[in-house]
Each structure stands twice: as structure tokens, then as C-alpha cells.
Design a protein around this nucleic acid. Structure first.
Lengths: 329, 329
DNA sequence: TTGTATGCGTTATCAT
DNA sequence: ATGATAACGCATACAA
């Protein structure tokens, strides 16, 4: 037995089993073959511990069963949750996940798209901050939370509806003077609609509101100063605050408590995302929960089944409110 | 121009540039070639938007520049942090990351190892819960937090030292009656040494201590009941608790506060891991911080440079205490 | 039903 | 220095 230390190939299996190469291939791929042949091949496979070489297979078939997933990072719990769900979905469909973290850098995003193209992935699922991302025609792409125009389908949650729900909930809980707070890129992405929904609901109900919106990179102390400006005689001007993310909501709650203002007794706060402590414990704050599993499932479906009929260009999934301690039940 | 819609190959580039195939390959790989040839090839590459097919390359060279990373999930902040750091490290070294989530399931772990082998990855970095994981000789493996024996190098933080540091810190802060709490698999992995370190330090200082250790799958209410049993006249028997993870520490703190016992005034708590709210904000609790970046760097180094001299079989990296609100100061 | 031969896109070994 | 050609491991069309 010429047992070199390199992994066995189909040829080795064929020799071991005393059959032809094509027969081995058929057995491996579940194509019917004479019973006795099948058994002999299977024995040889087991004996040699044979593993099909996906690189050879991918080269031949032009299918890699691999999808690239591109997000800013993995430490933000929302991204982590999203990637986790996408992974599960891909795994269920027998696909591998090649992961790229962009750190919000448009240049890196473009480089990773090129890498993914080289890897001949079956598709790219991206949460991109590059408004002019270029990607080859030949590789399917689905975008999360950013609408690139008709060519690239976009999956997002109902950000507008979420903004409205937050206002409705705060109103229902007795709030009559609201504030919206946001920090983030100026790019026109879907999450911007959280603000639109907030405004729309406030105006419909005739609720006075204030917006505090700052660009990415602004120190968070800007929010603290803003809050201090709105405290008179130890009382905050607002009795309800809607924050663009749970992360911001928690920061705001911390500032307020530090200023001696009680949450939720004096002011109620609702965030957005629906992330949980340690991934599976309670919500960090009362929040508008994004349907992460459905978003992940939709992304994967669109990527893997896009050829059957043009897929919808923008799918918007429903959100819901969840109590997390920063509202009155 | 026969412009089929399939991506251009080297052959197309060669034809476009009017040179031979080998010349194109050399240009692509930075092998010196006549100036005029190089320019023509580069122009053709740009014009056709050519991308090297890594599957063909990988098949030929038997190197894929891809590393498989296997963790239980991505939503636990510690795993998320770890994967994030490993990703950065791989990315710096121009490697791709193929990610597998095992959900703590030994069967899935074994299947993923086979998948990774098929993918011909350059190595596998795993945080495994399968004590008898089988992996082909030909693919390098590094294990995190579990020592498999001499063949497979293991990277972990100084769990024993961390346990000692926790005790020292609690003692220094005035605690004189300690408890250790743990939930997790019975498997002998490195984190078990947190308990050993705790005991060792307690005995060295002659501090009375109690252990509350339950198996994976036990409901958390077991801890709550345990605590209730140790409350007399509204006072807890212990004045310091060391928990095996930050996650558990936060749960314990929650139970205690619910029972009217103040943290850190009545009892101080130290966790383990050093995870932060939203990945980048404050620590969840006072904690023993694992050197995640160093662990990631070490894993990647061991995987990518293992052939030069036998790599150490067990590397243990230093941890440190950090204040996070559940201790005094 | 089984075996043989060709080619996927690339690198590398040859002559030229 | 450059161009033709043989593998890499597999799937598949075709011949037996």
C-alpha cells in the first residue's frame, strides 16, 4: 500500500475497491450503482477515510455551497444575533458560511466583495455601509437594511412601523412629550425610517416632540449635554424617549439615572433591535424587536432561490414591542 | 468578442492581452516579467474585470488560505468576542474564515470537522466540547480551553490564576466568607481550573468557602434556592462570591437584589470572561478579564506557523481583574 | 450498468 | 524571458 501522507483521492478509492473512477464518483453522489459495487466502494471509502475535495468539486461544478456574509463586526449583539441566525439557516440548507467583518469601512467592504467573488461563493449577504458597492453581475447579492436600487434585493425590518409602535406605546403609557435620539451615519438606509415613523405617529396624535440627531463619531457626551439642557427644577422636559438602538437607549438611561431622574418612573425609554443580555437573557431595555430569524431566513431564501422568478426588491418584515424594564410595564 | 456571461478566465486574459497563459499567471502572482508584457496583462485584467478563481488555485496549490473556526454559537458575548478577534488576526494575515457553530453538540462538531477537511482548510481553530474529536492528521488543529493531549496544541487563559486573583481581590476588599458558583459540562476542560485556583487561594489564606456546582441543564433556580438557604435574618452567609462566568455572576446578582441583598454593599461578586455591554461599553460586572486578543493571535500563529518546530502543547495566557460595579471600588 | 476520457482554471515544468 | 503542456481531483458525456 503506497500510503503517502497526503489525503486519499477518488483514484485511491477506485484502486482500493477495484472499480473504475466513475463508479466511485457515482456512489459518492448517490447515483444508483450495482449493489455489490456500492458496498465495495463504501468499504474502501471507510478504510481510507476518504473525503471529497470540495475544491476539485467546486471547480468542476461551478457551485461551492458557500455563501459570504459581510457585517461590520461580531461584537455588537445585533450583528452577532443576525449572523448567528443566518448561519443556522445556511447550515440547515447544507451551506457553508464565509464571514467578513468590515468595521464599517467602505473600502474594506469593496475588497471583501472581490475576495468573495474570487472564492466563487454562491451568493453574498451583506449589511453594507458603502452606497456604491460594486459587485459582479454573476454573483447574487442580498442587502440587509440598505436599499441599493432595483438590482439588489433588500431585506429589512419594518423600521417605519417600529417608530410608530414606539410612539403608540409611550402614549398609551401616559407619555405626552416625546424625544427621539439617534447617532449614526448620514447615509440613507432603512433604519432612518425609524425617525420617520416616530414623527409620523407624533404628528398624527398631536404629541409634541424633539429630535436629537448627531453624526457618527460625535461623542456621546453630546446626548448628556442635551439632556442637561432639558432639565428644569430637577424635572426632564420629556416623559418618553425613543432611541434608534438599544445600545443608545441604555446609554441614555444611564445618563438620566446619573442625573437623578428615574427610569421608568419619570421618563420611559424605548430602544430598537431587541437584543438580550448575554444573547439569551432579558432585554437590555424596553424595545422594538427586529425579527432576526425571519430576516435571516428571507436573506438565505433570496440568495439560494433567486433565479426562480425575479425576487422582490424590498422585503419589509414586521417588528413588535417588548417590555424590558425602561417603560411602565 | 465572445462575451458569454460567465466570468473571464486566465485564458481570456491571455487572448485579450495577446500573450501566453503562463505569462498571465506570472503577472498575477507577482513573478517578474517583461515590462511591456506586464502592462498589457494588467490592462486586459482591468478591462475584463478578471478575478482569479481560488478553487482552481486551491486545487492546484493545495493551499486555500482559509481557516475553519468552530465555536458553540455567536450570541454568547465571549464567543462573539473571540471569533471577532480571531477574524481580525486571520484577516491581517490575508486568510479567510469559514465559521461553524456547534451549539455545544459533539455530533455536530465531528461533522463540521469533516466538512472542514473536505474544504481543505489550512487549519481548524476550535472551542470544542467533544472530548474524543477525531481529525485527520493532515490538517493542523488548535484547541481553545480544552487540552486534548500532546498532539493538539491548546490555547487558554490562566484559569487557575484567575481563580486566585478573584479570591485575593475579594479578600483585599474585606470579604471573609466566600462562595464559588459554577454551571457547566462535567468534562475536564481548562475552565475547571477556575475552581481549583479559587480553592487554592482560599486555603492558603484560610478563608472559609462553599462550593455550589451544578451540571449543564440544571435550571438556574437551583442557585436561587441555594442562596435562599444561606440567608439568615436577611443576611447572606457569604460576603464574596466568585462565579465561573460573567453571565452567571449577573444572574446571581439579580437574584440577590431580588432578595433584598445589596450588591456590592452586602456581598461582592466577581465573574469571569470580561465581556462588555454591547461589546464595547462597560463590563457587566467586576470580572477576571480573559486576554481575548492574545488568545486569538496565539491560535492563529500556531495554526499558520506550526511546521517550524513543534509548537508548545499548552499555552496559558495571563488574565487580570477589572472593576465592574459588583465589588467595592 | 460500468468504464474511459475530457475538461473545469490554475500553477509549474519544461523547451524554446 | 516567454510559450506550450501536463497535472491537481472531480463530474460527466460517451463508449462499451
Amino acid at each position: 500500500m503506497a500510503d503517502t501522507n497526503s489525503p486519499p483521492t477518488m483514484k485511491d478509492v477506485a484502486r482500493e475497491a477495484g472499480v473504475a473512477l466513475g463508479t466511485v464518483s457515482k456512489v459518492i453522489n448517490g447515483i444508483p450503482v450495482g449493489e455489490s459495487y456500492r458496498v465495495r466502494v463504501e468499504e474502501a471509502v471507510a478504510k481510507l477515510n476518504y473525503r471529497v475535495n470540495s475544491y476539485a468539486k467546486g471547480l468542476k461544478t461551478n457551485k461551492t455551497s458557500t455563501v459570504a456574509v459581510m457585517v461590520p463586526n461580531l461584537v455588537s449583539p445585533f450583528f452577532a444575533m443576525l449572523v448567528n441566525s443566518i448561519y443556522r439557516e445556511l447550515s440547515n440548507r447544507k451551506h457553508r458560511m464565509l464571514l467578513f467583518a468590515t468595521d464599517f469601512d467602505p473600502t474594506q467592504e469593496q475588497e471583501y466583495v472581490i475576495l468573495a467573488e474570487q472564492q466563487k461563493v454562491d451568493g453574498i449577504i451583506c449589511l453594507s455601509y458603502n452606497p456604491e458597492l460594486k459587485v459582479a453581475e454573476s454573483v447574487p447579492v442580498v442587502s440587509i437594511d440598505r436599499y441599493f436600487g432595483g438590482q439588489i434585493p433588500c431585506v429589512s425590518s419594518d423600521n417605519f412601523g417600529g417608530g410608530r409602535i414606539a410612539v403608540e406605546k409611550l402614549y398609551e403609557n401616559g407619555c405626552r412629550n416625546l424625544a427621539f435620539m439617534r447617532i449614526g451615519s448620514k447615509l440613507t438606509n432603512e433604519p432612518n425610517k425609524r425617525k420617520e415613523g416616530f414623527i409620523s405617529a407624533c404628528e398624527m396624535r398631536n404629541i409634541p416632540y424633539t429630535l436629537k440627531i448627531v453624526d457618527d463619531g460625535t461623542p456621546y457626551s453630546a446626548f448628556e449635554e442635551f439632556l442637561q439642557e432639558h432639565v428644569n427644577d430637577g424635572r426632564l422636559d420629556f416623559d418618553g424617549i425613543f432611541c434608534v438602538t438599544d445600545s443608545l437607549a441604555c446609554r441614555i438611561a444611564g445618563y438620566l439615572r446619573g442625573m437623578g431622574i428615574r427610569v421608568p418612573e419619570d421618563v420611559q425609554i424605548i430602544g430598537f433591535d431587541g437584543v438580550r443580555r448575554f444573547g439569551d437573557q432579558e432585554y437590555f431595555c424596553s424595545t422594538i424587536v427586529q425579527p432576526v430569524d425571519e430576516m435571516a431566513r428571507t436573506c438565505v431564501e433570496v440568495i439560494l432561490e433567486r433565479d426562480m422568478g425575479r425576487s422582490p426588491s424590498l422585503v419589509c418584515l414586521p417588528v413588535e414591542y417588548a417590555y424590558g424594564g425602561t417603560t411602565r410595564s
